[in-house]
Amino acid sequence: MPFPNNLTTLDGTPLSPAVLENKVILFVNVASKCGLTPQYSDLVELDTAYGSRGLVIVGVPCNQFGAQEPGTPEEIKEFTKTKYDVDFTLLEKQDVNGPNRSPLYQFLVGDGPDIGWNFGKFLVGRNGEVIARFEPKTPPNDPDLKAAIEAALG
């Protein structure tokens, strides 16, 4: 399955494919009311550290795990900006598992196991192929994750 080019941002506008073109992308299914929500801080740090080198972080709100992302797009945006100073891209709320799994997550997961919880991470290379998958409890500042990002950035 090819990389989906019809992504929609949290505010309902199409995400320009140019934002992701020739970039290394870290997709993360996120939630505002999860024990792992503080990972937003480390995601912001990754964005600051690697954004100028070509890393794009994309948060994908998901309400499938314990209903931990119940908010409206406006509430999600305000929470992430106010609490964590998030300015990386947030997409519209999506299902990451099950029969309504979004096309993005069909691409990311492929034949792999379902996502276990909020804050699962997928690293996609400049060529649009999934390089690595990291489980929810793997923090964004994990040495293996950072090493994978470094290798992908070249």
Rank of each mutant, 00 (worst) to 15 (best):
K83E: 03
K83H: 08
K83C: 00
Y84G: 06
Y84S: 07
Y84F: 15
Y84N: 05
D85Q: 15
D85F: 13
D85V: 11
D87W: 05
F88C: 04
F88Q: 01
T89I: 14
L90F: 06
E92G: 08
E92I: 05
K93S: 08
Q94I: 00
Q94K: 04
Q94M: 10
Q94V: 01
Q94W: 04
D95V: 00
N97L: 08
N97S: 09
N97Y: 14
G98C: 08
G98L: 07
G98P: 15
P99N: 12
N100V: 01
N100L: 00
N100Y: 03
N100F: 03
R101M: 07
R101W: 03
R101P: 10
R101D: 04
R101V: 02
S102E: 02
S102G: 07
P103W: 05
P103K: 12
P103I: 07
P103C: 04
L104C: 00
L104S: 00
L104Q: 01
Y105V: 01
Y105A: 02
Y105G: 04
Q106A: 08
Q106C: 13
Q106I: 08
Q106K: 15
F107K: 00
F107C: 03
F107R: 01
F107E: 00
F107Q: 01
L108F: 02
L108D: 03
V109D: 04
V109K: 15
V109L: 05
G110N: 12
G110L: 12
G110V: 11
G110D: 09
G110W: 10
D111V: 03
D111A: 06
G112Y: 13
P113G: 13
P113S: 12
D114N: 13
D114W: 07
D114L: 05
D114I: 02
I115S: 13
I115A: 10
I115D: 12
I115L: 14
G116T: 14
G116I: 13
G116D: 14
W117L: 04
W117H: 10
W117A: 09
W117I: 09
W117G: 06
W117F: 13
N118G: 06
N118L: 04
F119C: 05
F119Y: 10
F119T: 11
G120Y: 03
G120F: 03
K121T: 10
F122V: 10
F122M: 12
F122N: 09
L123P: 14
V124R: 14
V124L: 10
V124Q: 10
V124F: 11
G125H: 10
G125F: 12
G125C: 09
R126H: 05
N127C: 11
